[in-house]
Amino acid sequence: MAEKIEGSPGYAPGTRVSTKDIVENKITYTWWEPEVQYSWSLGQAMSKFLTGLKKGKILGRTCIKCDRVLVPPRMFCEYCYGPTDAWIELKDTGTIETYSISYLDSDARRIKKPILIGVISIDGASPQHGFMHYFGEMSEKDIHIGMRVKAVWKSPKDREGAITDIKYFKPLEGGEKK
């Protein structure tokens, strides 16, 4: 057992090992690589939203009771807990609510050219209602919260009904006014 010290916890049981110990077979271990696939049906709201993206449109859903225009759209409102009311076509412009400049890929591997990522509130939706996406045609120095941006779409033939039908958001020409 580990050395006894004053106070609690009075000792610290457990055996520290390093990655090197594993690579060099200094400790015994076993290994497993799961192979599993999933498919998700997209449901009512997302099917319509992604079909809209395929047509180059950003669609929202209204909740009259809460006076909200919801993006991403949903068929029920999480606050008043009633059904939402109608589909509404929004602009493909918006404002950067927050962002990050990422030097990590999705496996936490380091990348040299950073990814610009953030949340865009979409014009015509309620304040701070929008989704996450990439930014492009701007430098790490230019990007800022409050920046006005516009969607850059894939060509119609390349769209597949996915969030990636928008390639990224670029600076909106004509300044910062909403």
Binding site: W40, M46, D105, S106, M132, H133, Y134, A162, I163, T164
Partner: peptide, 9 residues
């Protein structure tokens, strides 16, 4: 649906 296609960390 909305986040994973962007390969997030």
């Amino acid at each position: 649906i909305l986040d994973r296609p962007l390969s997030p960390n």
